[in-house]
């Protein structure tokens, strides 16, 4: 554990909680892509199945349980409790175009051809593109609320910090996981355009040009 990973994890946690609180407090999920949230729920579920097979640390276990719990709570709020406010018409990204190629890639390129390992690989690849329905929705409606941009910023920051974490681990532990690194770079790059807008507009709600 190093400082980049710890802050990265906390940033990830902050993003998830910001989104949950935003929906809960405003009693609305307008502007939020339910599809991205379903993808994140799938990401956490397929990645953290190792909760059942291996114990890393109390920290690790607690964070995994919290991430999974929050992901499903978010999906529940969007599709059940506040579904009247869900903007399905604008959430029109075709997720099968992500899930199917990512599934194929996970079967082809992985560390070990075993059930849990392929699911882990699938989750890593899927996470790198899971935000696309959300970004697509913002580009389609042309706007995002301030709080939604904070959510996206924390999520992007988490991934950027993980890149520093991997550089750290490579130098000090000789550790590197090529699959995680490549997917992490792809994921961070997807946020670059957003980061630029976030910083130049002071994080205020913005008009997003297509």
């Amino acid at each position: 554990m190093n400082i980049f990973r710890l802050i990265g994890d906390l940033s990830h946690l902050a993003a998830i909680i910001i989104l949950l609180l935003k929906i809960w407090k405003s009693r609305s999920c307008a502007g939020i892509s339910g599809k991205s949230q379903i993808l994140f729920a799938i990401v956490f579920t397929t990645r953290y199945l190792d909760l059942l097979t291996s114990f890393i640390s109390l920290y690790n276990t607690c964070m995994k349980v919290i991430y999974i719990g929050c992901a499903y709570a978010t999906v529940y709020l969007i599709y059940m409790k506040f579904r009247a406010t869900y903007d399905g018409n604008h959430d029109s990204f075709r997720v099968e175009f992500l899930v199917v190629p990512v599934g194929g890639l996970a079967v082809l390129i992985n560390h070990d051809f075993s059930f849990l390992e392929i699911l882990w690989t699938f989750s890593i690849y899927l996470e790198s593109v899971a935000i696309l329905p959300q970004l697509f929705m913002i580009s389609k409606t042309g706007e995002a609320e301030t709080i939604t941009t904070h959510y996206l910023f924390c999520l992007g920051l988490y991934r950027a910090l993980y890149l520093f974490n991997w550089i750290w681990r490579f130098y000090f532990e000789g550790f590197f996981d090529m699959i995680a690194i490549v997917a992490g770079v792809v994921q961070t790059v997807l946020y670059c355009d957003f980061f630029y807008l976030y910083v130049t507009k002071d994080g205020k709600g913005y008009r997003f040009s297509i």
């Binding site: 964070m63 075993s114 390992e117």
Partner: peptide
């Protein structure tokens, strides 16, 4: 083999 590789990151 199920889950041979141990992943310690989140």
């Amino acid at each position: 083999v199920i889950g041979r590789t141990k992943h310690d990151e989140l």
